[in-house]
């Protein structure tokens, strides 16, 4: 299985990663080998098997809809690399 350079760069864009040429070449080779390896699952007959998404069968766990205190604005912003006026600061978007 070969993903090809364009596919690796497309995945990187989707994953918000920038790869230089050397990194892209290395990762392309690694991913080719790993994808080939995981294709071993193709040996299994899986048509009639239900998928397992989690290790426990609980679903729709609710808690009472009571108001609770969360982090303060100050606590929530304490780790922000840049902040302004009680908000996370980012480069201009519009």
């Amino acid at each position: 299985m070969s993903l090809g350079r364009d596919e690796v760069l497309r995945l990187a864009r989707l994953a918000r990663l920038h790869l230089d040429d050397a990194a892209a070449q290395r990762l392309e080779a690694d991913l080719d080998r790993i994808v080939t390896h995981v294709e071993k699952l193709g040996e299994l007959a899986l048509e009639d098997v239900e998928p397992t998404t989690g290790a426990v069968d609980t679903c729709n766990v609710f808690r009472p809809d009571d108001p609770r205190t969360g982090l303060t604005v100050e606590e929530a912003l304490a780790n922000a690399p840049a902040r302004q006026a009680g908000a996370f600061r980012v480069p201009r978007v519009v």
Binding site: L17, H18, L27, L31, I34, V35
Partner: peptide, 20 residues
């Protein structure tokens, strides 16, 4: 740029495989 500088090779490898 932040993610590319911040993550190491194995993490990038797994993010890309998972994205794929």
């Amino acid at each position: 740029r932040s993610r590319s500088e911040g993550f190491g090779d194995e993490v990038k490898r797994r993010i890309l495989l998972g994205t794929y």
